[in-house]
């Protein structure tokens, strides 16, 4: 076996060398940093890393921190509404565009352009539009509707929905583009068959076409989910977590504790919680998407 292995390595030596950078990145930049973060979460590190061991203290503190609990709750609310609205809106857009409309490419361009913009831009611009002294409320007052109130960005009850609005604006086009690409791939004969059977178009979409687009739907949900977990820029630009902590999110909580509050132990404990959550959710998805019907290379 040993001789065989060394012969194999020798024949493919250059390939091993070529993959060395990737190996280094995976082992050090991904796995190593993860391990280090997890390790620090069990220490009492504050401004500088310490390598003592305080058990689950940081985690206990973490789940005793109102700001962290708020940010988790906020993330849940955002995730629920963002995924729901983005998906429904994107799918509806795709189906409507698929009705052989004129100026199709113009509509497509308009619905997808926000996705090309930075989250910072998305956050800033919606902050202005929803700003009571500048945007829609100000305009309505200018028209004489002085009772009109639209103060989402400064109202701690509604600020999350302002964030959701900005992110839906940013991401709905992505769902539209993916679903539309899927719709265009559906066999023409399926449509002919359903016409012969006299099935109404909406039934065909719901019962036949959308189930066929499962891979596209999974893809768009995965992409949207990642953007939620990583959500940071848009909140920083739009509300900076405020008013108060009303729009705090976990990624921002971690960044603040790392760089402003000098509480590395707490920050790494929070990032470990995020890491574990993501791994639990994503590992099966990755496995089924990328490796089940793996290419011939393996």
């Amino acid at each position: 076996m040993g001789a065989e292995l060394s012969r194999h390595v020798k024949r493919n030596l250059v390939a091993y060398i070529a993959l060395l950078p990737m190996a280094i990145v995976v082992i050090f930049a991904y796995l190593g940093t993860m391990a280090w973060s997890v390790r620090l979460s069990f220490s009492s590190s504050k401004l500088l890393p310490r390598y003592d061991f305080v058990g689950a203290d940081q985690y206990l503190t973490l789940f005793d921190t109102p700001r962290w609990l708020t940010s988790l709750g906020n993330l849940a609310v955002i995730a629920f509404f963002f995924l729901l609205i983005c998906f429904l809106l994107g799918t509806l857009l795709a189906i409507f565009i698929d009705q052989n409309v004129r100026a199709e490419s113009l509509f497509r361009t308009v619905f997808l352009y926000p996705y090309a913009m930075s989250f910072v831009v998305a956050g800033l611009i919606w902050q202005w539009i929803l700003n009571p002294d500048l945007g829609i409320q100000h305009t309505m007052h200018g028209f004489g509707f002085t009772d009109f109130v639209l103060d989402w960005v400064v109202n701690s009850e509604m600020v999350l929905y302002a964030v959701i609005l900005a992110t839906v604006w940013h991401g709905a086009g992505l769902v539209m583009a993916l679903i539309l690409a899927g719709l265009r791939g559906v066999d023409t004969e399926i449509w002919r068959a359903t016409r012969i059977d006299g099935i109404p178009a909406w039934r065909v979409y719901v019962s036949i076409v959308l189930p066929m687009l499962r891979p596209m739907i999974i893809t768009s949900l995965v992409l949207l989910s990642i953007s939620i977990v990583k959500m940071y820029d848009v909140v920083v630009a739009m509300t900076n977590g405020g008013p108060g902590t009303a729009s705090e999110v976990p990624a921002k909580f971690i960044m603040d504790n790392l760089f402003e509050r000098a509480n590395i132990g707490l920050a790494t404990a929070a990032s470990t919680v995020m890491l574990v959550t993501v791994l639990l959710v994503m590992a099966p998805v990755i496995y089924s998407q990328y490796f089940r019907k793996s290419g011939r290379a393996s």
Binding site: L5, H8, V9, N12, A15, Y16, L19, M22, A23, V25, V26, A29, Y30, L31, G32, T33, M34, W36, S37, L40, I226, V229, K230, P250, A251, I254, M255, L258, I264, A267, T268, A270, S271, T272, M274, L275, V278, L279, M282, A283, I286, Y290, F291, S294, A297, S298
Partner: peptide, 26 residues
């Protein structure tokens, strides 16, 4: 055919789903 390459690749893919905050401090 590089032994272990697919495992590395799987780790890399999984890493792309992890929030940057996990890697940033190290």
């Amino acid at each position: 055919k590089v032994k272990g390459a697919n495992v590395l690749f799987a780790c890399l893919l999984l890493g792309s789903f992890v929030p940057y905050q996990v890697f940033i401090y190290p």
